[in-house]
Design a protein around this nucleic acid. Structure first.
Lengths: 162, 162
DNA sequence: CTATAAGTTGAAGTCGACTCCAAGTCAAGG
DNA sequence: CCTTGACTTGGAGTCGACTTCAACTTATAG
């Protein structure tokens, strides 16, 4: 119904938080498809392209290397994932990946919270119920999936006999 | 009560998942304090050191650059954060940081879930209640902090008129 | 007509984080 | 005594992801 709006590279950069240089770079390494050009050679972007760039930005935040993004960008376009079993595989595997990342991050939050609490109450020595400490912040019960291995640096701070 | 146990660099690498080379590298750039040496010059590590390395590994997972870790490692040792206001500042600010990272990650999970759902039910065109879709997975109500901007790539997939 | 702004290109440079290498030391086994 | 293995060092090389650069085109405003 309405003419598809288009944006300059500068506008696109502003909207996505990705610099113009980087956008061109992504095009160069074919992470983005070659953008359409105006008669003067300037790139033009549509909403669709901006969405793609935002997806890249978001995946970047998950620490995914650019090369690994390629298949995701294929999905983001118009592929039906159900038709490509290995894509479904990929999606579910990365989903698992991210969930474990979230757990990692939550651990660091807990670590910080503990350090902050420690500063406030200033306990000296004496074993303290760490599980209890973790439990009492936030309303969420959540599975508490923190592995004992990764948990170990809590103990250093808990005793820190030095 | 019991003699403090010590580990070789190899054992330390195995326990932390960080390679020997990388551990030496961290020492070189003084991210880790110079490790004690045996008479033959070989490094020896204690549990405390292993904990520190594991904290580094964990922070790495949050995408933090090595340089930014330095203050955190100071905290992890035996500093009382409450005595260094700028450290408390730092901790709370990074805490905020991580929470927003978690939100980002959750978005990608939602994106993946949506794509997967889409494949299963195969809707054609027609606006679909995205909020409803997001809401119905997981038990957690959670604030649903996803910004409209970052949300935009959901719409591309939802209509994808192409 | 010229200056300014906004873009173009290909190539080179930078930076963080490793990763690898050569040359050497030391201890134990055959 | 020689070899093997586990380490040491300093320094060089690699890799991903930009970032900067020089030289150029095109459109608009004064």
């Amino acid at each position: 119904m309405k003419e598809e709006q288009s944006y300059t590279i500068k506008q696109t950069a502003e909207q996505t938080g990705i610099t113009e240089d980087t956008i061109r770079y992504y095009e160069k390494i074919a992470l983005l498809p070659r953008a359409e050009r105006k008669d003067n050679g300037h790139r033009i972007y549509r909403q669709e392209d901006i969405n793609t760039i935002q997806l890249i930005a978001c995946l970047k935040k998950t620490g995914m290397p650019l090369e690994e993004m390629r298949p995701f960008l294929a999905v983001s376009a118009d592929t039906d994932p159900a038709e490509y079993p290995e894509l479904v595989e990929l999606l579910t595997s990365h989903r698992k990946n991210i969930l474990s990342q979230i757990a990692s991050l939550q651990q660091v939050v807990d670590f910080i919270d503990m350090k902050l609490e420690e500063g406030r109450y200033r306990w000296d020595c004496s074993d303290v119920d760490l599980d209890g400490l973790l439990e009492k912040r936030m309303g969420e019960p959540k599975p508490k999936s923190v592995s004992p291995v990764e948990m170990s640096y809590f103990s250093v701070s808990a005793k820190a006999g030095r």
